[in-house]
């Protein structure tokens, strides 16, 4: 959906900046075929305890709300994968025995993609559990041109990486499917969007399966359904081959443009 909207904007001469924020499994590049020209490592500062200065007082473990430091007898263990790099342990250490050292979490890549789209993505290193900092750095690192629209492709769900992706956006487009599963996750995502005071629009993917409950829910909540994408073998086959919805069904172009116009109208500016 995000890639088709980006291509639709590009076709109208408004090539956007596209950020693939699904840093655990970025896949938008398969569709938009970017050539990466810039790379930058993402790292966070994690504590290292200087044993010579440490008195095992336990203050660091006490202040760490992520339990990323454990003091066991005279030993202090740092669990870097639990660390959120907040710096509290260093700040609070009465002996000044904690230094911070960079730990690489992943990489950011950027470059031009199809039809003038500026593309950037984050990719986490294998085994790294912390997506938030990678997404945060990606959003700071890739900046749009003057007046350029930014499309952020968020990961699925409603956990921290999604919050990090959608924070600061002007509009939240939620893609769901008309099934009890879709409805369950949609409700959570809507609550999150409302919590962040974002205007919300809904796209129903795989339209034609399931039931009418998503539609009823949208009606009750006053959420506009901006697009329906039919449940079709051709679409599944095409996307599996790395083709966007717009390439599979060029006639969707007008409907994608209408989605962008409706979003623009809700934001009080043309797309």
């Amino acid at each position: 959906m995000a890639t088709s909207l980006a291509l639709s904007l590009a076709a109208d001469g408004k090539a956007p900046l596209f950020l693939d924020c699904d840093v655990e499994a970025p896949n938008a590049g398969l569709f938009l075929k970017p050539t990466f020209e810039q790379r930058s490592d993402v790292s966070v500062l994690i504590p290292r305890v200087e044993e010579a200065c440490c008195t095992s007082c336990g203050r660091c473990a006490e202040v760490c709300q992520y339990h990323a430091i454990a003091v066991l007898g005279k030993k202090v263990l740092v669990f870097s994968q639990l660390c959120h790099a907040c710096g509290s342990c260093r700040e609070q250490c009465p002996e000044d025995a904690i230094r911070e050292v960079p730990s690489v979490l992943g990489v950011l890549e950027a470059g031009p993609a199809q039809n003038g789209i500026a593309f950037a993505r984050g990719m986490m290193d294998v085994g790294e559990p912390m997506a938030g900092p990678v997404i945060r750095k990606l959003k700071q690192w890739a900046s749009p041109g003057d007046g350029q629209i930014v499309i952020l492709d968020a990961p699925p769900g409603t956990a921290c990486p999604v919050v990090e992706s959608i924070r600061g956006s002007d509009f939240l487009l939620l893609v769901t499917e008309p099934t009890p599963f879709g409805l369950h996750d949609l409700k959570l995502a809507v609550q999150l969007g409302q919590e962040l005071s974002l205007p919300i629009g809904v796209v129903i993917n795989r339209d034609g399966i399931g039931d009418a409950e998503v539609e009823q829910y949208c009606g009750t909540e006053g959420l506009p359904i901006l697009l329906r994408v039919p449940f079709e073998r051709a679409i599944a086959e095409g996307t599996a081959r790395g083709r966007t919805l717009l390439e599979i069904h060029p006639q969707m172009g007008a409907r994608l443009r209408a989605v962008l116009e409706q979003i623009g109208a809700r934001l009080g500016s043309p797309p």
């Binding site: 473990a61 760490c64 992520y66 339990h67 990323a68 430091i69 454990a70 003091v71 066991l72 007898g73 263990l77 669990f79 639990l82």
Partner: peptide, 18 residues
């Protein structure tokens, strides 16, 4: 007390047991 920790329950429980 670590049973309901949002994360790091293992390290917290280990310190409790120690």
């Amino acid at each position: 007390s670590a049973a309901d920790a949002p994360g790091g329950a293992g390290t917290q429980a280990a310190q409790l047991v120690a």
